[in-house]
Design a protein around this nucleic acid. Structure first.
Lengths: 309, 309
DNA sequence: TCCGTTATTCTCAGATCGAGCATAAAGGAT
DNA sequence: ATCCTTTATGCTCGATCTGAGAATAACGGA
């Protein structure tokens, strides 16, 4: 009989370095990567977000800037199976700039796509290995109508059979792979039965990969209509630097000239007149975020149009 | 000293009847409208959402269809000030069809815009009363730079001074009005000092109006890229009925011919061939939702373009 | 039969979007 | 100096989408 509910706060702290989105991880007891976690002090923390900022500062020394609540995870079995306590976790997404992303002893920055490799389409579409594994799972489903339902789900979420790839459905894709037994956590949580030959991406502790997927999906969505990229880049940047940050988050390549048009004509950035010479070719102008855009347009963001091969 | 955290589930249950969005309310101890609330059974409810569905069914008899988690509210003072317990509330948005929206003894359907009247722009823009009250608050802020910050915030959120009205910023607007002391809850929570002559909209218990604002903002946002409207209309409908439901949620008028083009050419609906004669003029064709659109387009929704006067 | 009302079809101009061509400005090799 | 490679930047073109409104169709009632 469980009466007590404990509340914890999970942080998905994201930075972008070297054309890859990184997430701050710690090690769980078993050495498996985990998201930083801290308890809520019901007495001292006036709000959940302040509590999160407090223990992130205490544990890692990072003073968070942009913070946003993601989702509250509360499935009964999300901790160890059969535990006699119930832990609710409120997940948060935080964005920090590359400069602030120094490595400390306890925490490590890891590539987001190490955990969700199928989300990075920058070189090539979904791998044949992935599609094959999904088809194999599909073939094993009993019942014709059930099979059709799942086939549709696969097509919609993975952009197969003529459907378009939707970058925002990160969580849906992870959950589909979980159900199909294609990620490590499924094997761990449900005994062993699942497709053992195919473990996509690196596993995380508990349901942290689910939280990470939620964060990536939310971040991709928000890129479109809020100027959140600028939380991840330095004060000044070249347009191509900015583009690479967007591309790394979106997991797709963008058309260079159109990206420039979008952010420049859209009033999102303004030139500083200063020049950056280390580009390898013609020097590039340095730009900065143009705050006034918030007053001009209701949804200022960098739309993620079609992908580029 | 608070050690214990209690977890509750709040439901914003929305239906649309007679061109107005309605929310299911109960009465708090003091007779103030409140959102339905139920505790989480940490032992019996396998997931939070299942717990919500359980007690909504038990209390109101309504079997919820579309349910989506909104946000977790956990400020220390959200309950009565100085309480010796801390109550976390996970808010959910649920959509039900008009037919299912029968009144029961304990619960009452109320117009959403009774609580958030400034969100309904269908006849005319924000009232002069609202603008005047905001200007009065602004004038009372000490410090020039602080005043500029708040002036910008007002302009951005309420679409003044050339900024465009953004239908999704429902929560930001409510919180601004709260800070400005223009809603009842501000007066209640912070003693009395605030602008007593202007109480915009009807108050709700605790922070429920904040939760309602979150729900409306989320719903408006989701209309654009997911076919959620169809959770609110009958199986078959005329295009103008559909349009009025969208308009009531968005709080703005839409161009009739363009709306038709959007949903018809966009593949969201298909004609049934059947005719509806009670329109007052020429009979209208009945349409139904076209499920196949999910496989065709990544983000099938009814975009909310510019408002119509 | 005329009129008011609502439904439905078309048109048209402006904005946006995807894609590609062309030119500019650097460094390095010959 | 000349050519080549590389990256930056500017411009064009057609397809598509959007906002706005004209024009026509089909009902009920005066």
């Amino acid at each position: 009989m469980i009466r007590q509910v404990e509340v914890g706060l999970n942080a998905v702290i994201v930075a972008v370095t070297e054309e890859a989105p990184r997430v701050l991880t710690v090690r769980s007891g078993a050495g498996v990567p985990a998201l930083p976690f801290g308890p809520l002090d019901p007495d001292g923390d006036r709000t959940l977000e302040l509590g999160l900022r407090r223990w992130v500062r205490e544990q890692t020394g990072i003073g968070l800037g942009y913070v946003e609540q993601l989702y509250t995870f509360g499935d009964r079995d999300r901790d160890a199976a059969g535990a006699d306590r119930r832990v609710l976790s409120v997940g948060y997404l935080a964005l920090v700039r590359e400069e602030a992303a120094e490595t400390s002893a306890a925490a490590e920055w890891m590539d987001v796509y190490a955990f969700l490799p199928w989300e990075d389409l920058r070189d090539g579409g979904p791998s044949h290995r992935l599609e094959g594994a999904l088809q194999a799972w599909l073939a094993g489903i009993p019942g014709r109508s059930a099979r059709t339902v799942q086939a549709d789900r696969i097509a919609i979420n993975f952009g197969l059979e003529g459907a378009a790839w939707d970058g925002y459905r990160v969580l849906e894709r992870y959950e589909l792979l979980y159900e199909a037994g294609l990620v490590e956590e499924a094997v761990r949580d449900r005994g062993a039965a699942a497709a053992a030959e195919c473990r996509l991406g690196r596993g995380m502790a508990q349901d942290h990969r689910r939280i990470l997927a939620t964060a990536l999906g939310r971040l991709r969505g928000k890129l479109k209509y809020r100027p959140v990229v600028f939380e991840l880049v330095p004060e000044t940047f070249t347009l191509y630097q900015l583009q690479r940050v967007v591309e790394s988050l979106a997991g797709v390549r963008l058309h260079k000239q159109n990206f420039r048009r979008l952010v420049e004509k859209g009033g999102l950035v303004e030139g500083t007149g200063r020049i950056h010479r280390e580009t390898g070719g013609r020097p590039a102008e340095l730009f900065r975020f143009r705050r006034e855009v918030l007053k001009e347009r209701p949804t200022p963001g960098v739309g993620l149009p079609g992908a580029r091969a």
